[in-house]
Design a binder for these strands. Structure first.
Length: 111
DNA sequence: CGCGTGACGTATC
DNA sequence: AGATACGCCACGC
């Protein structure tokens, strides 16, 4: 397994349940050059990580996984858009940076 | 090395 | 909103 793939998987594995990240987000956090690489890494080794928490930049899942992925996301309580066809990135977006802050500053604007 | 391909992203029409 | 175009970069042939 390539080191690049390993880093991608490591990042995906740290996305907490109930949140999601875009391919681009993962790419940035993993240090991979482009979002495309994230997709390729998941296609090859995604089986061992919560791959469904990774969606496209606009919150929609990849076409061929649409049904399955949305089901898994909804199942663990990830906020979806009104139409239920995409992740509500206004509330569910995860980022490496926010990971630390959340610990001592629990979300306050959930109303 | 060139070329097609793709779980991507942004800009345009 | 849906379709196209182009940039991007690793991979396989």
């Amino acid at each position: 397994m390539d080191e690049l793939d390993t880093r991608v998987l490591a990042v995906v594995a740290r996305i907490p349940a109930g949140q999601a990240a875009s391919y681009g987000d993962v790419a940035g956090a993993a240090g991979t050059p482009t979002a495309r690489e994230v997709g390729q890494a998941l296609q090859r080794h995604g089986r061992s990580v919560p791959w469904w928490r990774v969606v496209r930049a606009d919150g929609t899942p990849a076409p061929h996984l649409r049904t399955e992925q949305l089901r898994l996301l909804a199942q663990e309580g990830v906020p979806l858009t009104p139409d239920g066809g995409a992740v509500d990135f206004g509330r569910a977006r995860w980022s490496e940076a926010r990971r630390d802050r959340d610990d001592g500053e629990q979300q306050t604007l959930f109303g």
